[in-house]
Amino acid sequence: MLRTAEREAQSLIFMEDICHAYRMGEQCLSILDNISLTIRHGESCAILGSSGSGKSTLLNILGLLDRPTSGRFLLNGRDMANATPDECAGIRNRLIGFVFQNFNLLPRLSALDNVALPLRYRGYSRNQSRQFAHRQIELVGLADRLTHRPADLSGGQRQRVAIARALAGEPALILADEPTGNLDADTAQEIMGLLLELNRTQAVTLVMVTHDATLAKQLDRRLHVQSGRIIEALPTGKGRGD
């Protein structure tokens, strides 16, 4: 019992016996099957798996976009079982930054305003939001692209803007869903390097869904989701924490 309490206290993410199922007519389709997972503050973790394995469902639960059918899920020490939708939205806004494969930038806004937008939702003034967004864009190496709209940026530059937006709220956790999926190999490695550098220097926990085993090996841990269960790969010596 003490060991479990210690893991809970040291973890940003603590999952115990998580199950998730959908009902279709008279059938109950199991997506996640008794998953237990602990991710500490500052770790980097890859989630791999084939389509339909349950990895997207797992990411949605981690991002408070879906709820497990059963089991315990603690996020930064908070038991999420009884959190209301409004409470989940508030926690997402404060604690989690999302990076998506398709960037999800607003086409009519500049890079600066795309990054500043989440801060406006927090109640910051336009000037405060833009000042903070400016610093985040500098951090990802795009200080000379502040006024450019997404259509005027390369794929790699758009993803850098998306990462800056994810960092705008100073999250403890970045959830990246195939962040290099639409990029060529060289640009993908650039983005991977940036995410790992932010993980090291900002102490932000990084959880990334990817199909690229080569990129996954650069993270501390590799979790394979197979038929709703997690199998963790043994360290290979290539990850930062190995």
Rank of each mutant, 00 (worst) to 15 (best):
I31Q: 04
S53M: 02
R40G: 04
P68N: 15
G54N: 07
D66A: 09
R67I: 09
C28K: 14
T69P: 00
L29E: 13
L59T: 06
H41N: 11
D33F: 05
I61K: 07
D33H: 13
C28E: 15
N60M: 12
G42R: 09
I47H: 10
I31A: 11
T69I: 10
R40I: 02
L58N: 01
G42E: 10
L59M: 15
L32R: 05
S30T: 14
S36V: 09
S30V: 11
L58K: 03
L62R: 11
L65T: 08
P68G: 13
G63Q: 11
R40Y: 10
S51M: 06
G42Q: 10
I31L: 09
I39P: 02
I61E: 03
G42A: 10
I39S: 03
S36P: 05
I47L: 15
H41M: 11
L32A: 08
C45A: 14
R40C: 04
G71C: 12
L29T: 12
I31R: 01
C28H: 02
S53D: 03
T57A: 01
I47D: 07
K55Q: 07
I61R: 00
L58D: 03
D66G: 02
I47Q: 03
S44W: 09
R40H: 12
L29C: 13
A46D: 06
R67M: 13
C45K: 06
S30I: 09
N60H: 15
L62Q: 05
S30P: 05
L64T: 02
N34P: 02
I47V: 15
G71N: 08
A46M: 09
T57Y: 00
T69L: 08
I35K: 00
G52W: 01
I47W: 06
N60R: 10
R40W: 01
D66N: 13
S44K: 01
T38D: 01
G52P: 00
C28F: 05
L64K: 11
L64F: 06
P68Y: 09
D66W: 02
L48T: 00
C28T: 15
L64Q: 10
G52K: 04
G54P: 06
L62V: 02
T69Y: 02
I31H: 01
R67A: 13
S53K: 01
H41Y: 14
L65C: 13
R67F: 01
L58F: 05
S30Y: 04
D66C: 00
P68Q: 15
T69E: 09
C28M: 13
N60Y: 12
I31C: 07
T57R: 01
L59N: 07
S70I: 06
L32N: 00
S36K: 12
R67V: 10
S44D: 06
P68T: 12
I31N: 01
H41W: 11
I35E: 05
G49L: 06
C28G: 07
Q27F: 14
N34T: 11
S50Q: 15
L32V: 12
L37E: 03
D33E: 14
L65P: 06
C45P: 07
S36T: 14
I35C: 09
C28V: 15
S30W: 07
N34F: 08
R40K: 15
S56Q: 03
R67P: 03
G42S: 08
L62K: 12
G54F: 00
G71S: 12
L58C: 04
